[in-house]
Computed example of a mutant assay.
Amino acid sequence: MVEKMDEMKELLLKMKEDTLKEISKAVRTGSDVKSGEPSGDIYDQASSERDRELGLLLSDREREKLRNIDEALMKIEEGEFGICEECEEEIPLGRLKVVPFARFCVKCKSDIEKQQAQTKRFEEERVYRDIALGEEEEA
């Protein structure tokens, strides 16, 4: 068990290092784009803006990944690493090797995603119903 924790800790620390490099790279790229004067035609400017927005979105994902890695490292220190937060069963090593900061076993994660999909579908249907009712009132 200790060997597994050491292996996971090493993997998480490597992921953290790689993620920090990606964030740094995104920040440098973003600052290079910002520092330049607007150049080119409107299409070039739109393309640059899209690239900047994509860079910000990616860095948000990287920051979230970094937060998840830090939480997993903290769980290792507390002796709670590799335990599903939903069913409290041990998360299989194979899953942890793929997603070392996994908080849920595959079954629980699948159940959670199904629940989220149902909630989203319900919300979308409600919005469309509200739009349709609003159009009927205008008629």
Rank of each mutant, 00 (worst) to 15 (best):
R52D: 04
D111F: 11
D44Y: 02
V99I: 10
G94D: 11
A132M: 05
F101N: 00
K34C: 10
A46C: 00
I69S: 04
Y128I: 01
D18M: 12
V98H: 05
D60I: 03
M15H: 14
E86W: 00
E123K: 09
Q45F: 06
E53G: 09
E90I: 05
A46L: 03
E125Q: 08
K114G: 09
V27S: 10
D32Y: 07
D18P: 04
V33T: 12
I42W: 07
E85W: 01
K120G: 09
T29F: 11
V106F: 03
E62D: 14
S39T: 11
V27Q: 09
G134P: 02
D44C: 03
S48I: 06
I91V: 00
E135H: 15
C105H: 01
R28M: 10
K21I: 08
V106R: 07
K34P: 04
L57N: 10
L54E: 03
V27I: 14
R129H: 03
K21V: 11
E124F: 11
L66F: 12
L20P: 00
A132H: 04
G40C: 09
Q116C: 03
K120H: 08
E113Q: 03
K120W: 00
E22L: 14
L93M: 07
R67K: 14
D70N: 15
P38C: 04
S48Q: 14
L57S: 06
L58G: 10
E123S: 04
F104H: 13
C105R: 00
L54A: 07
C108R: 00
P100T: 06
E80V: 02
D60Y: 02
V33L: 15
V106D: 07
E86Y: 02
G79T: 06
T29Y: 07
T19I: 15
A26R: 04
I131D: 11
S47C: 05
G79M: 10
I112A: 03
G36C: 11
I76L: 08
D130I: 11
D32V: 05
C108Q: 01
G40E: 10
Q45W: 12
S48R: 08
R50H: 14
G82A: 03
R103Q: 08
I23N: 01
D111V: 06
S59L: 01
K65L: 15
S47N: 13
R103W: 07
E80W: 05
F81W: 08
E64L: 11
A117W: 04
S48H: 11
D60N: 10
